[in-house]
Structure formats: structure tokens, C-alpha cells
């Protein structure tokens, strides 16, 4: 079990701040949840409490970035993509400000927050913003690499951070490259495409399918934008069926991204697993994953049904 992405985020920032005097963390008063509190204890002079005022926090970060600082923002994803989305749009994305959005409590496993806080549209919204880099790390190692890359690279970055830990996908040799699509498993019958921590569940589903004699390849898309469309198209060309899985609405996120690419380059059937145009609710994370078809077992079932229908 890897450490939670939020922990990896905070620990990496603590490490980077030691050598980078321009790195700052701004918190919308959720630091104990997002783990920005750890950063505050390690570097109290670099931690700026902005209060429960996300729009102001985003604007302040833009001002700081214009003075040469590298502000990382700490809040729940929903407050960036919904409450402060106009500030992210006009002040950050349109000016290509060097602001880094640490979007915590992303996906379905948010610790019983309910539909008010569950954000199943963040990828759709952020992906539609020109110039925004949109990243969804699959494990703590990848998350740390993304934090390092984003801190060193000018321009706005949206980093999707799950609350919980999950299986490790990568070892210490991992290097992040924006846009890169990572093939984790080969298989001739179906291609499973995952993003964020959902990729680990796709790998488990592939193992279940192998027991049935079905070859399932797995591709990880940690960089929703930019993305290597050619690599996704090439992977889709090798199989009969493409199945995407994400802790996100099926409208506008990874499934839409893959369908856009596959329909343009290699017509293949694309099954999109995710939240079906509905809101979230308070429930254990594992229950929500099951409810929305995102557990390995549910994915395997969906693949079997789809392949049967293909004949």
C-alpha cells in the first residue's frame, strides 16, 4: 500500500522548499485535510493561510506568481473547479500564470463528504481550459514526480490528489513526462485505460480477465492534458474493444478523451466506465466504487458483457 497522494504531495513540497526559496503554499483553510499543515510546520515562513476564501486565494496566487514566486494551492478539488473556476479561468489559465493547483479530495474516496463535495466533473472542466496542464497521479511515486516537475516548469498545473492510499504502480526509477501514456500490461482482446488511482483497479481487472482466458492490456494516462494521442490510438488499434475507467463522470473526462482520439484515428468501440450523469453521495469509498462499476470485479464483468455483445 502506497502512502496517500495528499501525503506524497505535502512531503515532496517540504523537500523542494528546502532548496527553492520561491516555493510557497497557500491554504484555503483545509490544511489539516490536504496535509498542507505538514508543510506549515516544516516551513512556517512559506505557508500563507488565506482563510475560507478560495476565489481570493487563487487571485493572490496569481499576484505572487507575477512576482516570481511558485505558489501551490491547497483546497478541495471542488472549490477550484466550481467555486473559484472563474478565477482559475481568467486570472490563472488565460494569463498562463505559474500557479499550481493541489486539488485534494479528488475522485470518489473523499471520506464521507457527500454530493456537495464529491467533484465528478473536474477533469472535464480543467481539460477544456486552454493552456492548463491536467495531471492525475496513479500512486505516491508518480505524485511526487509530478510535484517536482510542476514546481520546476512554468505555467499553470492542476494536480488531482486522492485522499486515500492505494497499490504502488511505480518504483523509484519513475520519471514523469507530460503527455506520456504508460503501458502497464499487454493483452490482445481488450484495452483497459485508466487514470489516477483507478489504473491500479484496471490492472486487477486484467488479472481477473486473464483467469478467464481473456487478454486485457492496461494503459495508464496520468497526463490528461497534454496527452500523447498517438500512443492511445496505437494501443487501441491492437484490440477489439477499448474500456475506460475513471473516478469521474463519463461526460468529459478520460472516457471522452479516449473516445475523441479513438473515433478520430482508429474506430473501435469504446466503453466508458465512470459516474453516469449523476451526483455523488456519502458512503464508504469502496461502496461508491462498486456502485459506479469501478471495482476490478465490476470492470471485468463489464468487459465480459461487452465482448459477448461484440460476438
Amino acid at each position: 500500500m502506497t502512502k496517500a497522494l495528499r501525503d506524497a504531495w505535502a512531503d515532496t513540497l517540504i523537500e523542494l522548499a528546502a532548496d527553492n526559496p520561491d516555493l510557497l503554499v497557500l491554504d484555503g483553510d483545509l490544511g489539516t485535510s490536504t496535509r498542507a499543515e505538514r508543510f506549515a510546520r516544516a516551513h512556517p515562513d512559506r505557508f500563507l493561510q488565506m482563510g475560507i476564501a478560495e476565489q481570493g486565494m487563487v487571485g493572490t496566487a496569481v499576484g505572487l506568481a507575477s512576482m516570481g514566486f511558485v505558489p501551490w494551492l491547497s483546497s478541495f478539488v471542488v472549490f477550484f473547479t466550481h467555486r473559484a473556476v472563474d478565477q482559475v479561468r481568467m486570472s490563472v489559465a488565460q494569463t498562463h500564470a505559474n500557479v499550481k493547483i493541489g486539488a485534494a479530495y479528488a475522485g470518489l474516496q473523499t471520506g464521507f463528504t457527500g454530493k456537495t463535495h464529491l467533484d465528478v466533473q473536474d477533469l472535464a472542466i480543467m481539460r477544456a481550459m486552454p493552456g492548463m496542464t491536467v495531471l492525475a497521479p496513479g500512486d505516491a511515486t508518480e505524485c511526487a514526480a509530478m510535484v517536482r516537475w510542476a514546481t520546476a516548469t512554468p505555467g499553470p498545473v492542476f494536480l488531482r490528489l486522492g485522499r486515500e492510499g492505494g497499490p504502488d504502480l511505480f518504483d523509484a526509477s519513475y520519471r514523469f513526462e507530460p503527455g506520456r501514456v504508460i503501458r502497464l500490461r499487454d493483452g490482445a482482446d481488450v484495452l483497459l485505460v485508466g487514470t489516477g488511482q483507478q489504473t491500479a483497479r484496471c490492472l486487477e481487472a486484467a488479472t481477473l480477465l486473464a483467469a478467464d482466458g481473456l487478454g486485457a492490456g492496461v494503459v495508464h494516462v496520468p497526463s490528461i492534458k497534454p496527452v500523447d494521442a498517438g500512443a492511445i490510438a496505437a494501443a487501441a488499434r491492437d484490440v477489439r474493444l477499448v474500456v475506460t475507467a475513471e473516478e469521474h463522470s463519463v461526460l468529459g473526462g478520460l472516457g471522452s478523451l479516449v473516445a475523441e482520439i479513438v473515433t478520430a484515428h482508429v474506430p473501435r468501440r469504446v466503453e466508458r466506465i465512470g459516474i453516469e450523469d449523476t451526483w455523488g453521495e456519502s458512503a464508504p469509498g469502496t461502496w461508491l466504487l462498486d456502485r459506479h462499476g469501478l471495482t476490478p470485479e465490476r470492470i471485468a464483468e463489464r468487459v465480459r458483457r461487452a465482448l459477448d455483445a461484440e460476438g
Binding site: G59, T60, R89, M90, S91, Q94, T95
Partner: peptide, 28 residues
């Protein structure tokens, strides 16, 4: 649009955002 015209320190138009940006500049 600060990305087009040198001399503009901020892009503005959607109202209410400028004071926060100025706050960040002053803090910086």
C-alpha cells in the same frame, strides 16, 4: 489582456478579481 499588451500587470474584466491579484503582488 496582459498576454498581448506589455505594461499590463494583470488581465481583468470578470469583476472582483483585481484586488486579490494586487494583494498577491504586494505580498510578493
Amino acid at each position: 489582456d496582459m498576454t498581448r499588451l506589455p505594461g499590463l500587470d494583470a488581465s481583468t474584466g470578470s469583476l472582483g478579481q483585481g484586488l486579490s491579484v494586487g494583494l498577491g503582488m504586494a505580498m510578493g
